[in-house]
Amino acid sequence: MYLTGDDVADQLLGSSDFALLAGMLLDQQVTMEKAFSGPAVLKERLGTVDPRAWVDLGEDEFVRQASIPPAIHRFPGSMGKRLYDLCRVLVDEYDGDASAVWADVQTGAELKKRLTALPGFGDQKARIFVALLAKQRGIRPPGWEQVAGDYALDGYRSVADITSPETLVKVRATKKAVKAAAKSANLPAAESAGERS
């Protein structure tokens, strides 16, 4: 994967479904590189990228670790708590296995429903992650294109389309153009451009 510009962080995203899911959760109101580097930062501090171990720390200690400079997010308290809540759901409902969220889904609609039930995953973030799973992990339940919407199309719309340093630049350029168009049309940027990935 080529989401952070850091080989260690990108390798973790490529090898850990949980790290990828956690990075997607953090991907708002910070750069994509910062968001998707968060799991690697926490792994270095905590020695693991296992949601069960993170839950075992307790919420207060986990949020404290997330907030140590350099913090994992510009809002480390609220986003650290949200990430802890995600870990708790994964432990309670999926035996700590992030891939179980999508392993046995029968349709794209079911996948999106499971994702939007997770802490921190609204409609748009879920659609982007459906596209990311399809394009970069080969997880393509029937109907995934419909639930992913435009993110399923070829092009450079989101994190799902980044497969090299060059495509990262193209996604950045597309997002910049969308935001500029939204600004000139007096639309809220979030309505037009969505979240940062």
Rank of each mutant, 00 (worst) to 15 (best):
L3S: 01
T4Q: 02
G5T: 10
D6S: 10
A9G: 10
A9T: 12
D10S: 03
L12Y: 01
F18D: 03
A22L: 00
G23T: 01
M24S: 12
L25K: 03
D27L: 12
D27K: 05
Q28T: 05
Q29M: 15
V30C: 14
K34R: 15
F36N: 07
S37D: 10
G38K: 04
K43E: 13
G47F: 11
D50H: 08
D50L: 04
P51E: 01
R52L: 13
A53Y: 05
L57H: 08
L57C: 02
D60A: 15
F62H: 08
V63Y: 05
V63E: 04
Q65D: 12
P69C: 03
P70F: 01
F75H: 03
G80T: 03
C87K: 05
R88N: 05
V89M: 02
V89P: 00
E93N: 12
D95T: 07
G108L: 04
G108S: 13
L111Q: 02
L111Y: 02
K112R: 14
K113T: 08
R114S: 01
T116M: 12
T116C: 07
G120S: 00
K125G: 05
R127I: 13
A131V: 01
G138L: 09
E145C: 12
G149K: 08
Y156L: 14
Y156E: 12
R157W: 15
S158A: 09
S158M: 07
S158F: 04
V159Y: 04
A160R: 03
T163I: 14
P165D: 06
T167K: 07
V171L: 12
R172N: 09
R172E: 10
K175P: 02
V178F: 10
K179L: 14
K179P: 02
S184W: 09
N186W: 08
E191M: 14
S192P: 03
A193Y: 01
A193T: 01
G194E: 03
E195C: 11
S197C: 15
